[in-house]
């Protein structure tokens, strides 16, 4: 479980996150939703340790990340996997090398073992016959799946996905969503997904946290989201005329 306790984040004079507290549960797909610029990515990067928090704490199964020294942080990072918005695959490496990379850096596996594990992960995300291709030679959806394969290569306890559906068509988005959901349950990972895609929210959101202008405004499940009574969340969820009509019809 990941606990975020009263986290605030400032960049120079700009305050981005205000006193955010939340719990992210293992084996569940925890979603952070909000408009662009609301602070979702900053929160995720604070949780992942890519940004330091200005105040507050982040606990990994009771272990305070903020109190850890560099060596301890390095160790705990091996338990984390992250899928970045653009995939962040290494351009100069092939698909297979990308997935083998964390194994090479942090395990004593032989080359054959690493390749076997990489192929296992790639097969899990349905990437077949693309091992020797470079990231620029595969589609956006495939890049995201390779990024997921790389993220799960070391059997992480915590998985972060920053807008995994951005730039993808609806069908591929659903494939990615389901993959994240399945992997979360299969490996009992604590998964945090940043998204503003309402399809994802409805399909895979076990627990949802709504961030508005750097503040946590609402927390609940996908079933509760339509009856939250929070104006900002309603404005976000029912932003389009079509969604407003659906709401009227459901009433």
């Amino acid at each position: 479980m990941i606990e975020v306790k009263n986290v605030c984040k400032e960049f120079s004079d700009v305050k981005v996150l205000y006193d955010i507290s939340a719990e992210f549960l293992p084996g569940k797909t925890n979603l952070t939703i909000g408009q662009s610029g609301s602070g979702k990515t900053v929160l995720l990067k604070c949780i992942a340790g890519l940004h330091s928090v200005t105040s507050g704490d982040i606990l990994y199964d009771g272990r305070s990340f903020c109190a850890m020294n560099e060596k301890q942080r390095k160790e705990i990072r091996k338990e984390m996997g992250m899928v970045f918005q653009g995939g962040a695959l290494f351009d100069s490496n092939t698909v297979e090398e990308n997935v083998m990379f964390p194994l090479e850096m942090f395990t004593r596996m032989t080359f054959e073992e690493r390749r076997e594990r990489a192929n296992e992960c790639l097969k899990r995300v349905n990437i077949i016959n693309a091992n020797k291709k470079y990231p620029s030679e595969i589609s956006g959806g495939m890049q995201k799946r390779v990024a997921i394969a790389r993220a799960i290569a070391l059997n992480p306890k915590y998985l972060y996905c920053d807008e995994p559906n951005s730039g993808l068509d609806p069908v591929t988005s659903i494939v990615i969503d389901n993959l994240i959901k399945d992997i979360t349950v299969e490996y009992n990972i604590t998964t945090i997904v940043n998204t503003h895609d309402m399809n994802s929210v409805m399909e895979i959101g076990d627990k949802i946290i709504f961030i508005y202008k750097g503040r946590k405004k609402w927390e609940g499940t996908s079933a509760e989201i339509f009856s939250s009574g929070v104006k900002e969340l309603d404005d976000f969820v029912f932003a389009s005329e079509r969604m407003k009509k659906i709401r009227e019809m459901s009433k």
Binding site: A48, K78, F84, G86, A88, D91, M105, F106
Partner: peptide, 17 residues
């Protein structure tokens, strides 16, 4: 620079490299 803006450096840091 390209690695930085495409978050490849973040990905390395994330892994603990």
């Amino acid at each position: 620079g390209t690695m930085r803006v495409t978050e490849q450096i973040d990905a390395l840091e994330m892994m603990g490299v």
